[in-house]
Design a protein around this nucleic acid. Structure first.
Lengths: 218, 218
DNA sequence: ACATTTTTTTAGATCAATCTAAACTTTTAT
DNA sequence: ATAAAAGTTTAGATTGATCTAAAAAAATGT
């Protein structure tokens, strides 16, 4: 069984490797975990010893099949807990992350099964991110960033790429949430900012950065 | 903020001291936590340094006012989580303890407030133990062990003294649960075992040990 | 009362996770 | 091509939690 710390490293590496596709550099991991490269090297060795990563000195870490499976279980737990916090306890979506970071490490397969059932077997968390199933299978969601959508084409916000609390608060403020209907009315060539209409009612101007982080389905 | 381990020691000491009344010996703590006396001595010193215990060498540990307050917060969290597990996730009452042991260490006052609300501000957990409120106040429950009840007097099971899973399973099997109505039909002088009727229907013979661990209100 | 037993504490070791500083690779720029 | 810069690993230290073994204090029995 993995320690709290090992689970966190594995999850971070899974994320940085974009689902196990690329190798990840020591410094990337160190930065993403706010720790030092030396600590990362130690942990990479440890996780390699457990066959969760493959490791070649000075090259970086690559997640293995079983590492990926374990990472997906942690992500599954994280997203189920976020769903619980928002839907049942009425947390706002920018308050859930830190608590879910702790809850995801609770060890009890029975608990997760029962929680999943209690929530009605959800397939996406409050940020729109897919929830891997018991076997680690990720429901595939076909989405594009709002920045790549066409003018006057109706779309539904399905998720956000990066869920920093400040970003989520900003979205709330301008009336954007998962499930909101958005349509681009105008694109400014100069800075790629957009004017959009939300839920056929309110208009808002959003920057290129925001548009690239908002994922939509059409 | 206390570590996972410090919280566990504090909780154990609170229990062993019967709510902060008595001093507790090193070996008692060691046994109750399945650890060694040497480790206990170290931890007692640490917690004394934080003014959660008062400590005199070779005499034992006494919990302080602020130690009691912290212990009660951990107990509050534990019992709220047990209530959640049984009432919302439909765990059976003998399955909840180990999971609640983990959940009680999650650090988030907001989470506990929201969980409390979600559960409807319960005052007792599934074992009938009182849940301290936000300020550490424990609702007082006036109960006696079934072994001290009179013959032919109706009573309601309100809690169990010690909730070992095997004991709880045994109670389930003979049809006893929190809220069950019990009445003593006959006492055997020889071994103090009892014949009882449960919910005005089924009869059962229970030993003195069991009767001492079953708490009732009349 | 005092020798024996029990309990508790201290001393010193280990393990996981972390760090800093130094050494070592790899990459980059001229 | 090679010197400088950037990135990575190693060596050695630290902290928290734990242990064993030895020393010290308290309790017990005759």
């Amino acid at each position: 069984m993995l320690s709290y710390t090992e689970e966190n490293y594995l999850k971070a590496i899974y994320r940085l490797s974009e689902g196990g596709v690329k190798a990840v550099l020591t410094n990337e991991i160190a930065e993403s975990m706010s720790t030092k490269a030396a600590s990362v090297t130690d942990m990479i060795k440890k996780l390699s010893g457990k066959n969760l990563l493959s490791y070649e000195k000075y090259y970086g870490a690559r997640i293995t099949r079983s590492g990926k499976a374990q990472a997906l279980q942690v992500i599954r737990k994280h997203r189920l807990w976020e769903t619980f916090l928002v839907e049942k306890l009425h947390f706002s979506w920018d308050e859930v992350h830190d608590v879910a970071e702790q809850l995801e490490h609770i060890q009890s397969p029975l608990l997760i099964e029962k929680l999943d059932k209690f929530l009605g077997y959800p397939t996406a968390d409050p940020h729109g991110h897919p929830i891997p199933d018991r076997d680690g299978k990720v429901p595939n969601v076909n989405v594009i960033p709002l920045s790549e959508s066409a003018l006057n084409k109706k779309a539904v916000v399905t998720s956000v790429k990066h869920g920093a609390p400040s970003f989520l608060q900003y979205l709330s403020k301008i009336g954007i949430y998962i499930g909101a209907k958005v349509m681009i009315l105008h694109k400014t060539e100069f800075d790629s900012s957009l004017e959009v209409v939300i839920d056929n009612k309110n208009r808002a101007f959003i920057s290129r950065e925001v548009a690239e982080n908002l994922l939509i389905a059409q």
